[in-house]
Every structure is written in structure tokens, then in C-alpha cells.
Amino acid sequence: MRPASFEYHRATSLDHALELLHEFGEEGRPIAGGQSLVPMMNFRLARPGHLVDINRLPLGGIEIDGQVLRIGALTRHEAYFNDPLIARHFPAFLDAVHYIGHPTIRRNGSIGGSISHADPTAELPAVAVLHDADIVVRSVQGTRKIKAVEFFLSAYVTAIEPGEMVVALEFPLPPSASTGSFIEQSERSGDFGTASIGITLQFAGGKIGKAAMVCSGADLFPIRAPEIEEFLVGKALADPGAAEAGRIFAASIDPVDDHIASADYRRGLIAELTRRAIEAACTRALDKS
């Protein structure tokens, strides 16, 4: 269980990294924390010919840039725990990061790496999809922003093209009368979830305005739940019909049936997590209003 041979390049600037990735095309992979990529390489399930080490590039940081919160690709997971901007604007995000891995993984893993790896039930992809984040991808040709809902194509498959790399995620800032929640269940704490649900709500006058919902575990990548988002509009925060929402959503999905969990269980669990996430978000909204 040791990697196949590759060539190593330490990028000295973002342009340098992009030039290297351009040069190597399919054979090139950026490496940040390595918490997802290196296990795959040790199993020889991933065998890039060239690794472009971006760890020393200034790509970290969480900052407000106009109407978005911009999170640099090299931001490590542990940074969110004590970040005031995350706490203030993105309660579902903050909930979610508590489910990520273990301390050493959180210290070294990066958002760019997690998003690019695209594990089906990883937390940060779900968070990006929930918040309609733009995934900012660069190559020598320039920058493109990909909507998170269009970024994840399947398990471990994304819209990143050869020569491209994730440089940041941009989360649109929500209005002040909004909140959210994220609930995940896994077999052990720190494991990738069996299923997870994230909710964001805008609210006014004791009612839900706009809502968003994401689910991991129903498909091979995190999916939105447009029918539930519509269902929630206008519902009273005190009685949002969360259980019904869970039932409706669970009936609409076709989760995989495998050795980790049966499709029936996944459906039942997702229904219940949907209810709990909606109720948790509504409780927060009531506390805030």
C-alpha cells in the first residue's frame, strides 16, 4: 500500500500552479491537505503522474467580498469553528463542520480538496450545494464559476476539467432574517454520513419565506429538494409541517441499497433527518425573530 511513482512540483504562485496543471492535463493533480487524495494514491486507486503542491500558495482565508463570503481553497476545516463570519451568516455551515472527520483531518484537510474529491456524503459539498455557492475554478484560460448544483456529477466526479483547479468558494450572503441547520447521522462520529440534511430559511412575520434544502445519502452526490423548498414557503415557523415534508421528500428519492445501509433505511432516516433539520432551523428562526 504505497503510491505509484509520480513527479512532484511545488507551485510558487497560482499562475505557476495553473501552468503546471495545463502542461500535465489529465496526468496532473493539485495536492493540498492530501487527506482524501493520498489514501487513494496509497491504495493505487489514484495514480496521477504529476502532483502540483499548492500548500504554500496564499489561497486560504474567509472574507466578505461584496455580497459573497469568499472561502479560499486552502482554508482548513478547523478554521470554521471559531470564524465569526461563518457563525453569523451560515449556521447550517457551522453545524455541518462539526461532523467532519477527526481533529488531525480537520487541521489539514482543505475545502478545495474536499470539494474536488466529491465524496458522496462529505459535508462541505453538501454545504456548498445548500447555499448555492459558486465554485471558483481557474486554469490558464481564466476563471469560471460553477454553481455547486452543477459541479457534482456523480460519486467522486466533478465538473473540473483537466488543467483546472478550485481556488475558492463563494457563498452568497443571506439576508439577516435567515437561518439554517444541518443534521447528519453516521455510524460513528467523524465517519462520512449515512445521510445528512441541510436547511436554510428566510423568514418574516413568523412564517418561512424562501427555503433551501440539501440531502446527502439519497443519491451519489448531494441533491437539492425543490419540492420541499416550495412546500416550506409560507409555513408557520411554529408549525412548518416538518414531518410531512420528510415524508414527501423520502417518497421522492431512490437511494442506493448496499452493504452500508438498505434503501428503506436510508429513506426512513432521510425523512426523519428532514423533519429534525426543518424543526431545528425553525426553532432558530423563532429565537432570532
Binding site: 512532484y8 511545488r10 495536492i31 492530501g34 487527506q35 493520498v38 489514501p39 496509497n42 502532483l51 503542491d53 500548500n55 481533529p103 488531525t104 483531518i105 487541521r107 489539514n108
Partner: peptide, 15 residues
Amino acid sequence: GTPRLSCLTFAVQCD
């Protein structure tokens, strides 16, 4: 100064 998994790190990264 901080904990790191040495099985997920290439020595060349640590120059």
C-alpha cells in the same frame, strides 16, 4: 508544531 498523519504526507512536501 501541529499533528499530522505522516502516512498521508509526502516527504518532499516537507522540505
